[in-house]
Structure formats: C-alpha cells, structure tokens
Design a protein around this nucleic acid. Structure first.
Lengths: 233, 233
DNA sequence: GAGTGGTCTAGACCACGTT
DNA sequence: ACGTGGTCTAGACCACTCT
C-alpha cells in the first residue's frame, strides 16, 4: 500500500527524483506535461508545477515553454554556500570573538575598486583593514572600501565596539551583492597578520554589496590557513 | 500613474524590497501579514506568499508561523556558485578542451575517503588522476575516487574520448552532493602538473556525489593559479 | 498557430509555534 | 488556544517559443 492520500509537492518531487535516479527518465529525455503528471498522480497541476519548478531551480530539470521539461544532462552545477557571519561563526563554536582595526583612513580608490564601486577616482572612500580573531588567534583579515557618498555616516563611525561589518549592516539596507572566491599566496603582510608562513595558500572571498543600484562597499576577506567553506546543510 | 493592473509576484517582491531599502521596514521589524498585504496591494494572498517566500529564500526576510515575517538582521548570507563543467567552461571561451589520465588503478581507500564514501577499507575503489587542459595549458588537476560497488562498469571504462566526469554523468544518475572549498599550497607534484611554483596558493574544490543514499564518487579539483569562482549572474 | 510552462485567483484546510 | 505562514485545489488566462 502506497496509500492514496493527496500528494504534497515534496512527495511529487521525490517521485520525480526516483524516476530520474532509476533512469526511468534518462538525461535529455522529455518528461510528461504538468497536466498529465497531475492527472497520473491525482493532484492539482499547481502542485506538480511547484515540484518541477523546484527541481529545475536545483538544476535537475530543464524547462522551456512549448518545448516541455527535460532531465538535465548535467545536474549539480550549482552549490549554495553560506557566507559566514564572522562573529556568529566563532561564537557558535564557543570561542571568543574579537577584532582590531589595523588601518582606517580616507584614501583614493585604486582602479579596480573604482570599477567595482562604480565611482570616480576622486570619490571619498573610507579604507579599513580589520583583523578578526577567534580565541585571540587570527581568523580573518578584512580589507574594506566604503563608498561614503552612499554612507556618509561611516566617516564618523568609531568601530570600537561594533565591527565595520556589523556597523554597516545596521546602518544601511543591503539588497544584493556579488561574490568571488579565489586562492592567494600569503604576502609578507598577510602572513605576518594571520600568523602563517609567507606564500601559504589562503582562501580569499571578494564581495561587493549593493543597495538598489548604489554600490555600498567592497570587501576582501582573507581567511586563516586551512579554512574551509561548505555547502549549507 | 502607477497603474492599477493586478500585481505579479515579482512586482510585490520589488515593492517589499523598496520598503526595506528605504527603511520603511527596518531590520528586525515585523512586516504586515500576508492577508493584510494582499488586501493593501489588491492581489491574492498566494501571490504575496510567493513573493515573500522568494525573499525569505534569498535571505532578506525571516518567516515563522505565528511569529510572522521579519526583515532579516543580516541579509546576504548565502551565495550560489555555479560549479563549472570543465569542458563547457573552456569551450565557451573558445579554447581547446583536452584531458589526460595520469593515473588509473584500483586502490584501497584512505580513511578520509572511506568516511566520505561511507565504505569499508576493503571496498573496491577506482582511483583516477586526470589533468584537464585549456589550449594545452594545465587548467584543473582532478583526483577522483569511484565507488565501484555503486558503479561496477567504471572498472571497464576506457576514458579515452570521454573524461571520467563526463562518463560518470552519463552512466549514473546523480542526485545530490556536498561541496567544500579551500585553499592549498601547491605540493611539488601539483606544482609540476599544473605548471606553477611549489607552494603557490591554489583553489581546491572537494565534492562528494550521491545517488539516493549511495555514495558514488569523491573528487578533488585543484585549479590552476589565479582561478576565480563567481556567483552566477 | 498551437502547445507548454508561468502565473493569478478565491477559497479552504493544515501545521507549527507562540502565548 | 489561536494566529500566522504553508499548502492544495480548480479553473482561468497569459507568454513564450517551437514549428
């Protein structure tokens, strides 16, 4: 008995996943229309739609109007990473969170930052270097450029009890952003600050944050040696 | 005239985004119920639901039954990266894709691979080292362990015209997987293979792939120096 | 032109978590 | 207990895109 209760969209998803897994529907195959599936499974088309849309979002299916729905040839091409909130990440492990502002000055933006923040070379930009620590050990080294046209109050901010990131989060409404991950070899300065040997491979996360169409801030986080970023859940 | 056509869920999303951006609804604030919003905006609750659910998925809102919907205190904690299909990535840039199998043998799995693939130490495991090239230059160095209990045919596969990854994608239905990103310092072997200096910082992507509850394969990709992984669109 | 997914609606009931 | 989001339904119309 598989039961005949009406199906939830999750149940429909699971059925479809199984058929793909068991190769009843093979990569590249077209699968039945929403209407047919709904009838076969005994639920509303909207339910099937919700299920299939989810699988398409996950990259398992490819859907196009008129052309129908096909099993993706190459699934798993997307991965969602949780971008850590440094303080949370550290405190959740029961370690002591701490930070130190190393540099704080107004500075003309270099060309790459001008491009990222979409500003001119004479725009007033706040430059910050911050070291975040877990149990007093270096954890992440942050280099940040803040567009003070977008956030004038940043020029007055003290950043003594609240880290630059936390301050910005409270002050302005973020809306979106772009990320890039890369590996770098530790410069002498980075090695000194993070307490690793010069040339060590370090994970670098670049992030630019937007509020509507206005660029707020551009950051590079350089993590301590050995740091790993995982897909969530 | 803003018009009085009925709203799409995207339009509702944009309205909510604006209210958050303009701080009409501040981080931590509770926003109106779906029903109220639907009435205010003149659309069905399902439409509001779809819009708000999307924003919650994106991390901009936090929703809980009974407690209602709140503006997230810290948005943008998730980022979706497109995991490259090596061949596509290279050919899309108009470069020549190529690969070479460097090692191919049955080998007892080391403890970390045993754990990842959830197998015993005597399980039959295929070990593969492959170098992928763009325009004959080293691009990615892949180290792969294949659970031949799950994919017996892998023992016979030639991998002469089809890379191990492409072969596996055709042969078994993937269903999910876990990813981790880290930075490593190039070992002598890796430096030799990838044509960089020993100790250079390189981006490493570890991936374990599942079919239902059965673990199929575990891979480490080590990218050439300077490689960057971006959020998609 | 016609077929398929995309979306909206109005109403209903359910499930969870707060109170 | 009760309020809020979560989901399902049946039906309708729209929008894209393939032929």
């Amino acid at each position: 008995m598989t039961g005949d209760a009406r199906l939830s969209w999750q149940a429909v998803q699971e059925i479809v996943r199984q058929r793909i897994r068991q190769r009843i529907w093979k990569p590249g195959d077209q699968i039945p229309h929403e209407a047919d599936l709904a009838q076969e499974l005994g639920c509303a088309r909207a339910t099937v739609n919700r299920a299939l849309r989810g699988l398409a979002d996950a990259g398992l299916l490819e859907r196009r109007r008129k052309a129908g729905t096909r099993v993706a040839l190459n699934p798993i091409r997307r991965a969602e990473f949780s971008i850590p909130l440094i303080r949370e990440e550290i405190e959740n492990r029961g370690e002591r969170f701490d930070f130190r502002i190393l540099t704080r000055e107004m500075r003309p933006p270099p060309p790459d930052i001008q491009a990222r923040l979409q500003i001119g070379e004479d725009a007033p930009i706040l430059y910050l270097q911050t070291l975040y620590m877990a149990n007093h050990m270096p954890y992440v080294f942050e280099t940040r450029w803040v567009n003070t046209r977008a956030v004038p109050a940043a020029q007055e901010a003290r950043f003594d009890t609240m880290s630059p990131n936390e301050w910005l989060v409270r002050e302005v409404a973020f809306d979106g952003g772009d990320f890039a991950l890369s590996a770098i070899s530790a410069s002498t300065q980075e090695a000194f600050i993070l307490g690793c040997s010069a040339g060590a491979g370090l994970l670098a996360l670049d992030r630019t944050t937007r509020n509507g169409r206005q660029m707020i801030t551009s950051v590079r986080l350089v993590f301590h040696a050995g740091y790993r970023l995982h897909t969530r859940a």
